[in-house]
Design a protein around this nucleic acid. Sequence first.
DNA 1: CGATCTGTTGATATCCTTCAATTTTGGTGG
DNA 2: CCACCAAAATTGAAGGATATCAACAGATCG
Lengths: 263, 263
Amino acid sequence: MHRRFPTEIHPAIAKLSKFVPLSDRDAESLLALVTTVHQIQEHVDISVQGDLPHAAFMLIDGVACRYCVLEDGRRQILHFLLPGDICDSDLYLLDAMDHSIATLTRVSIASIGREELSSLRAHNPRIDTALRVSALQDAAIQRERLVSLGRRSARQRVAHLLCEMVWRQVCNGLADDLTVRYPITQVEMADALGLTPVHVNRVLRDFRRDRLVRASRRLELLDMKRLQAICEVTPDYLHMKRSRPGFVRSIAGPKAEKRNLRV
Amino acid sequence: MHRRFPTEIHPAIAKLSKFVPLSDRDAESLLALVTTVHQIQEHVDISVQGDLPHAAFMLIDGVACRYCVLEDGRRQILHFLLPGDICDSDLYLLDAMDHSIATLTRVSIASIGREELSSLRAHNPRIDTALRVSALQDAAIQRERLVSLGRRSARQRVAHLLCEMVWRQVCNGLADDLTVRYPITQVEMADALGLTPVHVNRVLRDFRRDRLVRASRRLELLDMKRLQAICEVTPDYLHMKRSRPGFVRSIAGPKAEKRNLRV
DNA sequence: CGATCTGTTGATATCCTTCAATTTTGGTGG
DNA sequence: CCACCAAAATTGAAGGATATCAACAGATCG
């Protein structure tokens, strides 16, 4: 069996542990589903709208996205997939994909057998619960994006996406600093935020001017507090109950600590 | 027990039957969960962001919505809830609501016991599957809305929402014509579509001028085909496999028939 | 070391918002 | 039945946020 992470720090375990306390045995039995890992190049469609739905999968490394393409070729990115995300365990129930999934970077991905997963869930209520909460988090992320596209300015949308990328990386145990580890291009940000690449560029220029971010190999968020103040979003919607003390707290600020994070 | 609909036409049964064939016994065992029905006035919050999540519920009559409120008081409507929708069966797993739910009209609503529902799902795989697909439909509706807010013009957004209301009413067995049975105000449309009420009004004026809709007590869609052509959306994303022959087909047009609806 | 994608900047255009005022509608009580 | 009121719908004028178009610079990679 191919295993790239010690059990304790596998991003899927890190993530699910934020929702439900998992024992080492729980973690092992979940990771036992990861038998074959595929490497896929960047900018490759994993699944295309209209296709028969694929098997459930776990993203182990790299970044992918769900997206739709309009008749005129423009794209709307619906969701970014990060390492540790477990996706689409029920999707096989449908006849046809209603959206597409593509890699953005080179990725490592494990497909998960339908029977094995459902049997594990049936026999392990903690894992089952963790996966349900994880699905609720996904839904909440999409809701928050909908609020952004509907009612927030371009500045707020960009600030929100940057914060969310860091929050989610922390949730999945991928980052202990405030850098966007897997950089997404300005075109991708634009397609996710309902903006043009040109305008995303201008917003980022202003953020740089105001010392909010710094562009290096990884985009670095210099002032989370102000970025969060700009977008007016707290990480509450990610429902990370069991964050390590003092960590997400330091990112989220005292407001979120008081309101949601039961450390 | 309070029962307003014969089993065959209860909107929840009509809807779930679109996903999985249900026997009369299936229908009865699901409707057996509806023990107490509450009437709630229009414009009342059922659940507010930050609250402890409520029980799962079934909307029996009227219209409600999920929404978020921004710091400056503006509102984003995330989703309209129609009769027959069964909502939030997993939400109890969270510590706090990340959005609010409110009635738009007077509604009849049945809360559904967590234990009873999960026991029914465990013992009835068809109902379990139907509820899973229903959850997938909800997710797909939100994705399609995200595409609208991100990449479609005001005209397209309004046309899409009107089409979707009719499609969903048909899905839930609520309408056999092309009228929006539960009218939503222009303010509500604006809050759902990320527009201002003023602009929604102007779009609707143009639609009326072009004989696409007619405002009566119920908003009437005079030309579904052209409305669908305007928004460039097919009802495929609603995944209504088992529609009655010749019905959704007549709404959806030949394209959707060929591509998705296995009648 | 050219080709191609990504990022950057300026000038102009446009869709939608904002603001303000008026009309229409629907409900309620006299 | 009518008077009244609040909510919803409607219209016009003006302004602003973001898009579009175009050109170029910088990075990345075979």
